[in-house]
Write a protein that binds this DNA or RNA. Structure first.
Lengths: 322, 322
DNA sequence: GGCCGAGGTGACAACGTTGTCTGTACGTCC
DNA sequence: GGACGTACAGACAACGTTGTCACCTCGGCC
């Protein structure tokens, strides 16, 4: 900027004014400055600007894995909202590791993001307290924060969706319905198990439940074990998108009825089509981002807790009779 | 930092030394400083640091759309390499719009990213020249830059993969092979058409080619038109992952042989399984990022042009006889 | 002529770091 | 005892912006 100023024969401040479109600059002077800018290929140093102004026009997003379609759809939605507000998005994948989540948040805060959107991997977010107190708003998506943190949340209706799924299977005559979910320490997995159990009532059987991280081998082992029971399951409810796909592979064509939590591309092209309880990842991202920007523009009302509805999409696999 | 300094009863510089783990601080003093840091919840202001040091430890990635599995896998790989080098990743989706690509690059450069990885949406990158001259390295992935820009590239063997796919169909007895590709202005689409054409030789028929952005309606219309020809196609080669899925829907069960460029989740679970020419998006991202960090650590040898191999994965749809 | 206001323009400090240089205390060696 | 080295600590400038305030010039008015 200094170079531009001397090239145009004006003071630093005048260049600053031109660059920022501030009024009170003679059009002829402005033109001279702009020419100098073009000639020198100057571009404003955003770090210095941030240092001076205090706002970075940046928001941080911590998710589990960008390569997971659920989170990439969520990211894209957040990015779109951020761009619309003239903000850049910093994204990081925690890989479901609390340490990495914390490290990402720390890094984002050191870079002075204006706000944070977090899909938490851990159950303790006390480390966020200083940032929140310092006025950096945070919105938690998909899962709530650990205890003692009163921040905005945007969740899906996990229990309701699970009830919907299991009731659907019951309505099609099933009484023995297995549940494959992620580890119960993960909020969504636990809530979905709750919904499933509630829908089953006294039909619930502990032996038809498996809760652990998705892997083809374990899914296959669990299903084999359940199918070897005296009264084997005739239907299966899977607790997330990855598990649905894993279960499809593990089933290898065995004709259990199936409903999965989370929609996924191609669910309609399989045969039978896979019945799912669809969440709206883009909607969650959008809602969270809009909430965050509302906070950034000064709204300091009490924390809000949004729960987005889910919907059941019948495609065949969930309508198989028992 | 100033507050920490006075709280610990030391000078600014001593705090700086402790924060950066520089030697030459009395352990007792260091402890006092660290205590003060914890007590005040201090965290270094990265903008100021960047301003002072000149390096941001940040790299920018411009892709087409994070929500596309190909690009999200690529992103994730780049992010992993970046983290390993202590760098944060800025990601932006261009949505295949040249203006947005340029805007993203401009924004990244204003934030003084140390380097850029770009999947270009446009054919003209002269706007990058000042940045490159200023010493910001760039690596182009998946598609090369516009003319006149001599930068590193990491591409797939598009033509070779397309030849492989079409030859595979020919080997299974097909002579009338349709090609559905994206708009020919997109580098990969054009190269894949080249490979397809080369493999067909005199069997090539202009009427069996459609090149436009994927959409269910247009794909259906194009296929219907081709299938109504005197000598309709018995096989189909689709030029990217999204088109493969779109074509599957448009075909609605009509039993054409099919090979798709790009692998996708669940390709193996469809019936028949979908034969594909698989690229390695993670490998491309990794290779590009490693190349970029090599440049960042001082390698200024001549620009490198990597071409990653692809491989054909037979799953059934491509082995249907004519 | 002197005063005023408006429109332009510039000087300067400050944002929070870090690099360089200088200062001090203490121990060691001739 | 004096010169010197070492270990530690601090003062100060600089990075590239922007906010504040002051300045200059010029035209219009009494």
């Amino acid at each position: 900027m200094k170079d531009v100023a001397s090239a145009a024969g004006v003071a630093l401040k005048t260049v600053s004014r031109v660059v920022n479109g501030e009024p009170g600059v003679n059009p002829a002077t402005a033109k001279r400055v702009r020419d100098a800018i073009d000639r020198l290929g100057y571009s404003r140093n955003e770090s210095a600007r941030v240092l001076r102004r205090g706002r970075t026009s940046t928001v941080g997003l911590v998710i589990e894995d960008v390569a997971d379609p659920f989170y990439s759809a969520l990211s894209r939605a957040v990015e779109d909202v951020a761009i619309r507000h003239g903000c850049l998005l910093l994204t990081g994948s925690s890989g479901e590791e609390p340490a990495r989540e914390r490290e990402l948040v720390r890094t984002f805060c050191a870079r002075r993001v204006d706000g944070l959107i977090v899909v938490p991997a851990s159950g303790d977010h006390s480390y966020l307290r200083p940032e929140l107190d310092a006025g950096t708003p945070a919105v938690f998506v998909d899962r709530p924060p650990g205890p003692g943190l009163d921040v905005d949340t945007v969740l899906s209706d996990n229990a309701g969706g699970a009830r919907l799924a299991t009731r659907h299977l019951i309505a099609h005559g099933h009484r023995r319905i297995a549940f494959l979910g992620d580890h119960p320490s993960i909020f969504t997995a636990a809530r979905r198990l709750d919904g499933h159990r509630a829908a089953l009532g006294r039909l619930f059987d502990e032996r038809l439940v498996s809760m652990r991280p998705p892997s083809l081998d374990t899914a296959r082992a669990d299903l084999d074990r359940m199918l070897a029971l005296d009264r084997p399951p005739t239907a299966l409810f899977t607790g997330n998108g990855r598990l649905t796909v894993t279960a499809l592979r593990a089933l290898g064509g065995r004709p259990l009825a199936l409903v999965g939590f989370d929609d996924f591309e191609l669910a309609d092209l399989l045969s039978p089509g896979v019945t799912v309880v669809a969440q709206d990842p883009g909607g969650m991202g959008r809602r969270a981002a809009e909430l965050l920007f509302r906070r950034l523009s000064g709204d300091d009302g009490p924390s809000e807790h949004h729960e987005l509805p889910v919907r059941l999409i019948p495609r065949g696999s969930g309508e198989r009779p028992s």
